[in-house]
Simulated assay, not measured.
Amino acid sequence: MSSDILDKISFDSNGLVPAIAQQHDSGEVLMMAWMNADAILETLASGTVCYWSRSRGQLWRKGETSGHVQRLVDFRIDCDGDTLLLLVDQTGVACHTGRHNCFFTAVRDGAAEIISEVEVSPEEMYGKSPAGS
């Protein structure tokens, strides 16, 4: 079954595919990250979302350090197979900055505006200020 799923996905030249995480009940778009075949298989097997960290070059089990995990509710592949939509149940905040989602900067009247406050400090989540999570 897993090869059937992976065959439907168009990975880029680095073996990655973008994955959008969306809160399953509210529709809020939480974040975008990358997945490789191993991250997809682990996510489907465990029910807890796992991504590929390009900066660390390894699997990134969302919430492993912060405790702010994403439980998979539904896994969807778009029509071209080149983007994934993960409907999740987010525990805590999704963004490493401590905001509920990663899309907290809006362009309004030609200027960037922060539209969401920090809910949990990165220091509190990670014990230090991370470059990314």
Rank of each mutant, 00 (worst) to 15 (best):
Q90H: 08
G81N: 10
L72W: 07
F75L: 09
T83R: 13
H68W: 01
D78P: 03
L85E: 10
V73M: 08
Q90K: 06
V73G: 02
L86H: 00
L86T: 09
R71Q: 15
D82G: 11
D80T: 07
V69K: 15
D89Q: 07
L85M: 15
G92C: 03
L86A: 11
L86W: 04
T65L: 05
T65I: 12
C79D: 04
L72E: 11
G63K: 01
V73R: 01
T91I: 13
C79V: 10
T91E: 14
T91W: 02
L84F: 05
F75R: 04
D78A: 05
Q90P: 06
G92Q: 01
Q90M: 10
L84E: 02
V88Q: 00
T65D: 08
V73A: 10
D74G: 08
Q70G: 09
E64Q: 12
D78Q: 06
V88E: 00
L86P: 00
D80F: 06
G81S: 13
V69R: 10
I77P: 01
L72T: 11
E64C: 07
T91Q: 13
L86G: 00
L85R: 11
D82N: 13
L85D: 11
G67I: 10
R71A: 14
S66N: 00
H68Y: 05
D82A: 10
D74M: 12
Q70K: 07
L84Q: 03
R76V: 06
R76G: 06
I77A: 00
D89F: 05
D82C: 08
I77R: 01
T83E: 15
L84K: 04
D89Y: 01
F75Y: 09
L87E: 14
H68S: 04
G81L: 08
L72S: 07
L85G: 09
L84V: 11
V69T: 15
L72Y: 11
D80A: 13
T91P: 04
V73E: 06
L87I: 11
R71P: 12
L85Y: 08
D74Y: 05
T65G: 07
L72M: 11
D89I: 04
S66V: 00
F75W: 12
V73F: 07
R76W: 11
R71F: 14
H68D: 08
V69Q: 10
Q90N: 03
F75D: 09
L87C: 06
T65C: 05
G63W: 00
C79G: 09
V88N: 03
R71C: 13
D78F: 03
T83L: 14
T83Q: 15
D89H: 00
T83N: 14
V73T: 09
G63S: 03
R76C: 12
R71L: 13
V73L: 06
R71V: 15
V88G: 02
G67T: 05
V88Y: 02
G67P: 09
T91A: 14
R71I: 15
T65R: 09
H68E: 04
